Simulated scan of single mutants.
Amino acid sequence: MAHFEGEMMRKNKNSRILIITAVLLLSIASVLFAYRSAAHMVIKNMTAMHIDMDESTEWSGGKSYIKVPYALDSQSQYLDLYVPNTAINEEAPHLFVLVHGGGFIFNDSQSRQAQLMYRYFRDNGYACATINYRLAQEEPFPGALCDVKAAVRFLKAHADEYGYDAEHIAIWGESAGGYLAVAASVTNDNEFMDVEYIGQKEYEERTGEKLSAKVDICVDYYGAVELTDKSDDWKTLGVPKFVVNIANSWLHTDVMEGYSDVESFWQRKETSQMSEEEKAYSDIYTYVAENISKDFGVKFWIAHGDCDITVPILQSERFYDTVKELVGEGNVFYRVVEGSGHAGDIMYSDEELSGLKIFLDENL
């Protein structure tokens, strides 16, 4: 009898384990189904391709100029310049200006993404200038934007000295750098020109004119072009807040000094508490509406990964739709990179960059 009771207890215990396991598996399956879009993004991010990058700083294809100061307000205002040998195309190379990302609080001119860009393009005949700018910890908005526009003017003023063609310039930025590159491209020469570049007085005295910060092509890689709350976009994309928080845990640091997000920290005021006038001051669409028209003269290449869990792809979609209406469909190109997360290496594969190079070759 005791043996029979023990056997029944063992079977009941096993049954309970099976039931609990089934319930857990069902719960997991239900969650995955409910958040299947987010699950897909997470899996793609975890299994994404990785580019092995040579850590050597040696380059035999031309001249390197490291930490060239372009302004004197801060030690952060410098750029690294790579000018290929002109024998590649028998002409002075076109200039490609690169603006790193990092949420306005991290990275510098030698970020991984900036390196992947300039290593490819300098080897393919472009002079590449990767800009360092004042991060949010050092200077609030619009400091970094003023730095970028000063660097562009510096590069134009010193083109003959370094040996590249500054008559036609492309600018690229990724993530936060995407915001800066776009903002520099759509604002005019009366806006955000407060930083004096090195040699400005001499240039203006010699030529009798002021240099423009205008560029010819803007390349926006998953740019954070909207400094606003992203909750509605994540809801539309089916990505729950806890997934976004985990994916962007690198942004939740003490460096933000108590602000709820990097956009608020950069502007030194919670975006939710800003007036409409304050929001408009940093809103790219303010300047798009004021300055862009059919004869604007700047062409756009916009690229975004469809598995980005940092900057919603909907931001790039809206920007593309808006710009297309203003400059014409033939002057803006939108590329969705399937399976790419935020700053994913696939965005910097030879296949992707060769397509961008064709666009630059044809339009610079």
Rank of each mutant, 00 (worst) to 15 (best):
F4L: 12
E5H: 13
M8G: 04
M9S: 13
N12V: 12
N14E: 15
I28Y: 00
I28P: 05
L32T: 06
F33I: 08
A34P: 03
R36C: 07
A38N: 03
M41K: 14
K44Y: 15
H50G: 11
D54W: 03
T57L: 07
G62A: 04
Y65V: 04
V68I: 15
A71R: 04
Q77V: 03
Q77P: 06
L81G: 00
P84E: 01
A87W: 01
A87S: 14
I88D: 09
H94I: 04
F96S: 01
F96A: 01
L98K: 01
G103I: 03
F104H: 11
S109A: 11
A114G: 10
Q115Y: 07
M117T: 10
Y120C: 01
R122D: 09
D123M: 01
D123Y: 00
Y126D: 04
N132A: 14
L135R: 14
L135N: 08
Q137P: 15
E139A: 14
E139K: 15
F141G: 10
G143P: 10
L145C: 07
V148T: 11
L155S: 13
A159Y: 08
D160T: 15
A166L: 04
E167F: 02
E167H: 08
W172Y: 10
Y179C: 06
Y179H: 11
Y179G: 07
A183F: 11
V186D: 05
V186E: 07
N190F: 03
N190I: 01
E191A: 04
F192C: 01
G199W: 00
K201R: 10
R206K: 13
D216G: 02
I217N: 06
V219N: 01
D220K: 00
G223M: 02
V225Y: 09
T228L: 14
D229Y: 04
D229Q: 08
K230N: 04
D233K: 13
D233C: 13
T236H: 13
S249Y: 04
S249Q: 08
W250G: 06
T253G: 09
D254Q: 12
D254V: 08
V255D: 11
G258E: 02
Y259T: 07
S260I: 06
K269Y: 05
S272L: 15
Q273S: 15
E277P: 12
K279F: 10
A280D: 14
D283N: 14
Y287K: 05
A289H: 14
K294I: 05
K294C: 09
G297V: 13
K299S: 15
A303C: 13
A303Y: 12
A303L: 12
S316W: 00
E317S: 10
Y320T: 05
K324N: 13
G330Y: 06
N331K: 09
V332S: 01
V332A: 04
R335A: 01
R335C: 05
V336S: 08
G339S: 08
S340W: 03
G341P: 10
G344H: 11
Y348A: 02
Y348K: 02
Y348D: 02
G355N: 14
F359I: 02
